[in-house]
Simulated assay, not measured.
Amino acid sequence: MNVVVDFAFSRIMELCMYDVNDFTEGLESNPIYYENLQLSKSMKTFKYICSNIPGPGCNMDNYVEQFCGCNCRPNCEPISCPCIKQQGLNYQNGRLLENIICGDSSKAILECNSKCSCVRACSNKLVQNGIKYKLEVFTVKNKGLALRTLETIPRGSFVCEYAGEIVSEEEAIKRSKNLTKDDMNYLFILNEHCASGIIQTFIDPKYKGNIGRMINHSCDPNLTMYPVRINNSIPRLALFANTDIERLVELSFSYGTSSNCDTGNKKACYCGTAMCTNYLPFDTSVFL
């Protein structure tokens, strides 16, 4: 009994001691600060989470399910690990395989999970081990808050997730309709095409999300998003570097290609790249 009490007290103290200027609230291995520490507290408007959590309308059966684990020890070998053999190899030397980055492969990415016997440093565990690079929140003219790297990130490296509440389509429509023209819309709709049709996942980090919420759109981004599955069928939206990213460069990914609305309802894109389409991607399906 004393052991349980001591552990609980220790955990409470640990949570109370995190740096108040850390956007991640002490939940990531590296703290992430705002460039102006005096403004960091006022600019933080959401509860930090490391990965997706169930939100209103989420199908809880998808969270209850658990993939089977492998019995590999201490590490997994591609020729014998059932997790790797199921969908094929994902990573090499801690980076995403080149054929996946180049788009030559459309395979699903499946990592070893919490039921696997392999060690945490297993070569098939990458996204689940969290953010490894030092990042910083800063401000950019016309775009507001943004995220940049404080160290060089090699091509193929995992940077962070785009995490939030997994909500139902009905909840996504409700939240979208409540937005004003000045509100930021963080809702991301993932469309996965498979033999049975299109699987849609609605992720909203507006109220609860991670640092991926700070990443702006670019028509020529340096990050690419890949759905990664670990413990169950709910995808984790992992962002990988699609090029070598130098220190102090802003991180960006494409919000999509949809632009099926009239010009008056679109928001201007300020990515500044040669490939800029002038407007941010916009999907009207959740406004119907």
Rank of each mutant, 00 (worst) to 15 (best):
C112K: 00
V137D: 02
V127M: 08
I131P: 00
N124L: 02
K125I: 08
I100W: 10
I101G: 06
T149H: 09
A108M: 14
R148I: 12
C122H: 02
G103T: 10
N142C: 14
L126W: 00
G130M: 01
K134Y: 05
N129Q: 10
D104T: 07
L145D: 08
I100P: 06
K125G: 00
C112F: 01
N129W: 06
V127L: 03
G103I: 06
E151C: 13
C102V: 13
C112W: 00
K107W: 04
Q128L: 04
I109L: 15
K141L: 10
V127T: 12
L110T: 08
K107L: 08
I101L: 15
A121D: 06
S123R: 04
T149K: 08
F138H: 14
L145G: 06
V137F: 07
K125C: 07
K141N: 12
G103W: 07
K125R: 14
V127C: 03
T149V: 14
S123G: 07
D104L: 14
E136N: 05
K132L: 06
F138A: 12
T152A: 10
K125N: 02
I101M: 15
S105P: 03
N142P: 03
N124T: 01
K132E: 11
C122D: 02
G144T: 13
N113F: 04
Q128N: 03
D104C: 07
S106I: 13
V127W: 01
G130T: 04
N113T: 06
T149G: 12
Q128F: 01
V127D: 00
K143H: 05
V127N: 00
G130L: 07
C118L: 03
N99M: 13
G144Q: 09
T139G: 05
K125H: 07
I131E: 06
L135R: 06
V119H: 07
L110H: 10
K132H: 09
S123V: 05
N142I: 09
E151S: 10
K107D: 08
I100N: 03
N113H: 03
R148Y: 11
V140L: 14
C116Y: 08
T149A: 12
Y133R: 02
